[in-house]
Amino acid sequence: MRIEKHPILDFARGKKVKFTFDGREITGHEGETITAALVAAGVLTLSKSIKLERPRGFFCGIGRCSSCYMVVNGVSNVRACVTPLEKGMDVNTQVGRGEIASC
């Protein structure tokens, strides 16, 4: 959920844009991270882990752990927590290892 009113902070949000997550249309704000947009929309599972395929969500927030590896516009292993949202992005849950583009 988004914080609409805060006693101390003002949030400067980019313009609203639509993107898809696992085929579903979601609205986020341009320039915020993909994870911020997904979490705001109530999406908590971003990937399934490499060996045991356990659900993983937002964790480190600085692009260093592997919990938010997602498939974005066909590219695997994109760190959604540090990747800015763009209009029309095709974002998908990554299950296990990623794939290289042409294989």
Partner: peptide, 8 residues
């Protein structure tokens, strides 16, 4: 590199 599904 980071791991990817078997392809080679």
């Amino acid at each position: 590199t980071e791991p990817v599904k078997h392809c080679h």
